[in-house]
Design a protein around this nucleic acid. Structure first.
Length: 294
DNA sequence: CTAGGATCCTGTCAGC
DNA sequence: TGCTGACAGGATCCTA
């Protein structure tokens, strides 16, 4: 679930709440959610909060880094000791009622006891994980090493080269590949394709240079819009009046808007299936025509 | 090497 | 109510 903007929102949130906090104890409730010896983490202060693509990197003072990948349903929730105020807590990641629940709940996988509160790693489907590794070895981690650049760092030329390794795959499948471009997931892939007016089933090899440029621009633009809207957090999950919010509505033009009119042309947004994933398009703005590549 | 489908896991929802 | 199958904001593994 959580894609680059959600992970960046968490990175910023945690940095403001627990920078330099000492981890006094780690409680692992689900073995597969925490990889490595927790003893290397206990007693250490968290010095830096970094992000690479959808991976969150927490650097400790002893040269150890915890790499967090939330995959589909991961969340990180911080609660300050003895406080009931929402200003003393932070929740980010896959938005569910766990943001509000008494914790730990049945989806809590790891608990970090800090000097100033507790940090919970929740993950309904257990696909996510926290991995202990040496800070110097982060760049050699198989996943990190294979990551392509994020759209802000990537030239059109490099994007095109990466795309064209997958000429016959549908463009949506190609941009979901983190080795092609880092950060997009199911939401922002749909949003970026809508931005560029490209049908997700188009063969990657059929895209023109102009479409490739627009797609890269769209990837940056839609993820920036999400980060700027505050991302998926407790604050966007619950509105001031106590009702449930839906942060997707703050920036998403097509994702989970099937049945609604396209804001550009008024045609009805539909949901289809591409590369095994639910996919949202405006059938009028995103036509399936194979253009010849120049 | 790529393409496409199955797979990891738990919960929810639509349709009998 | 209870069952069943489909599906879910990710990435990897397997097969062709």
């Amino acid at each position: 679930m959580p894609e680059l903007p959600e992970v960046e929102t968490i990175r910023r949130g945690l940095e403001s709440f627990i920078k330099n906090a000492k981890i006094t104890k780690v409680e692992v409730l689900c073995g597969k959610s925490f990889i490595g010896p927790k003893e290397l983490v206990e007693g250490q202060k968290i010095k830096a909060f970094r992000r690479k693509g959808k991976a969150l990197l927490l650097d400790l003072e002893n040269g150890i880094t915890m790499m967090v990948h939330l995959r589909m349903t991961g969340q990180l929730i911080f609660r300050k000791t003895g406080s009931k105020s929402t200003n003393d807590s932070f929740a980010g990641g896959h938005p569910t009622d766990s943001f509000l629940n008494e914790l730990p709940d049945n989806q809590t996988r790891v608990i970090f006891e800090l000097e100033n509160g507790k940090l919970y790693f929740n993950d309904q489907r257990k696909f996510g994980f926290i991995k202990v590794l040496e800070t110097l070895e982060v760049e050699n981690d198989k996943f990190i090493k294979s990551l392509a650049k994020e759209p802000w760092e990537m030239s059109e030329k490099e994007f095109e080269e990466n795309l064209m390794r997958h000429k016959s795959a549908p463009i949506k499948a190609t941009i979901l590949d983190q080795k092609v471009i880092a950060g997009l997931g199911n939401i922002y892939a749909d949003e970026a394709l809508f931005y560029a007016k490209i049908h997700p089933k188009r063969k990657t090899g059929s895209l023109t240079k102009a479409e490739i440029r627009k797609l890269l621009e769209g990837a940056k633009s839609v993820m920036e819009a999400s980060i700027n809207s505050g991302g998926s957090t407790m604050k966007t999950y619950v509105k001031a009046d106590g009702t449930k919010g839906d942060y997707l509505r703050l920036f998403a033009k097509v994702f989970r808007r099937e049945g609604e009119p396209c804001e550009k042309c008024g045609a009805e947004i539909i949901k289809i299936r591409v590369a095994g994933r639910g996919t949202h398009i405006c059938p009028n703005c995103q036509k399936l025509v194979e253009k010849e590549r120049k």
